[in-house]
Nucleic acid binder design. Structure first.
Lengths: 272, 272
DNA sequence: AAGTGGTCTAGACCACTTT
DNA sequence: AAGTGGTCTAGACCACTTC
């Protein structure tokens, strides 16, 4: 003998689907047809917000609209918007700041750097990091590069080689291969003109913030070239870190192959 | 001119503190005195549930009471219990199963294994894992071991050495040092009698499930002993993985030093 | 049918930041 | 004072599992 909580608008109580563009979409009770494609409202909201990020409606570092405004715009309750934002904040796509608003995550902040730079000094001193670009050129994707970036072999990619030094000690030798379409126009000069981490440049100049990455780590020995560049003995042990980085929508846009000298540093990781 | 939503019981609307044992604690409006120690209700609930886990009230693999029952027990709304459980599920302490209940996470399930075994075969074949215990004895903690386990130098610890093989190929050489009080009575025989991962044994026989770990990874070369045990050449590159594992309440109870042969395997990691 | 977690809503109030 | 996110409540209904 319970009384239905009166809704603010005459929406049906069944499954709802938010139309692509719609604000207050007319609601429907689910038929058997859409049972397969059904997803909860808050995940649909999450998709809509993600599209706003992909489309550049809200840029890294900027605030997105308040929960209340998004709720009005999408025709759902604030609690539902909240749950969508909670999920995106857990994925480090958004950052909540009490009293201020919700912001698009950015690589411009120290906070975000350490998510993708896992190499830490053995003692916890501050370090001066410096990046030296050895090479930056366009080339055709090999089969392996193409597979990692979901391209076709022969597609254009940008290849970069650089050495990272900490307190003047060369420590990381990185080879990068970037999607040639996304990073069209990337040159050694542009990198040199930018001060800060590469991911900051990728985000601001190419609208492509890295959101996630998968790594495979092995131990190898230094060959002649890497030994010279890292100033270690040939045959010295190095960490080989292969990384595929993704932007919004889990789209892979960067393949990276790093050689880390772990004489005075270590790769830190947390198993949660 | 808003009307206060009528509460179900005459609780004050200010900050509440759940007394150590209390169910429906009498509530208080916060004075300036307790402002420093204030924490939201759902975090207090989270602490209470964690105590239940620590105290063995609910064991790994078992279900905890339903959200509704916990809400009644703690004198809060179901939504507040829900938020506490959500947080613990995000930390992999609890596992929610729709329609069934909420369960205490356990290392007995394949699902949990991979959280702490990050070494994967380069091709994604199935592997037969086998552990061979080389040594298990009691010793006194060195300064370094003591620091990692928050003990005093000279305190008793259990030291274990073992080799992990995949498809018959020795791949991991592990040295473990365990808190001697928590793991009193651990012997090579007990390990040999247990089939499955060590963390399963630790959980079931010593009421000490590992919930989290911090790792530091370096590249090293094999010395004579490790080369022989892993059947690689002296000077071959190996991953050195130093791990401190924690149980409930972030209490460190295991220090582990692993040497991984990455000829046919790699350490996998996700940067989120 | 009953019990569990999962979603969604509406509203009140708190904490924090800015105006 | 106004606006933002953060907490807490109460209730309805959905999806899933078990009896």
């Amino acid at each position: 003998m319970t009384v239905r909580h009166p809704p603010a608008s005459p929406l049906a109580t069944g499954r709802r689907s938010l139309d692509p563009a719609a604000g207050r979409s007319s609601s429907t009770t689910a038929g058997p047809a859409d049972a397969a494609t059904f997803s909860p409202l808050y995940l649909q909201i999450k998709t809509l917000i993600t599209r706003g990020l992909q489309g550049g409606e809200w840029k890294p570092g900027e605030a997105i609209p308040s929960e209340g405004e998004l709720a009005r715009r999408f025709g759902v309750s604030q609690g539902t918007v909240r749950k969508a934002i909670d999920a995106m904040a857990a994925e480090n796509l958004l950052i909540r700041r009490q009293g201020k608003g919700t912001y698009v995550a950015t690589h411009q902040e120290a906070r975000a750097q350490f998510r993708f730079l896992r190499l830490a000094p053995d003692d916890d001193r501050e370090e001066v990091a410096e990046s030296r670009i050895l090479d930056c050129r366009r080339m055709r994707a090999t089969a392996q590069i193409a597979a990692s970036l979901r391209l076709k072999a022969g597609d254009g990619v940008v290849a970069i080689r650089r050495v990272l030094s900490f307190d003047g000690v060369p420590t990381v030798l990185d080879d990068l291969w970037l999607d040639g379409v996304v990073f069209r126009g990337l040159t050694a000069e542009r990198i040199a003109a930018y001060h800060g981490p590469l991911y900051g440049l990728f985000e601001s100049a190419f609208s492509t913030p890295m959101t996630r990455a998968e790594e495979r780590i092995r131990a190898v020995v230094a060959d002649g070239v890497s030994a010279r560049l890292l100033q270690v003995a040939t045959g010295a042990p190095l960490l080989l870190v292969e990384r595929v980085s993704m932007t919004y929508g889990d789209r892979p846009v960067e393949l990276r192959r790093g050689l880390y000298s772990t004489a005075g540093h270590h790769y830190r990781n947390t198993l949660g």
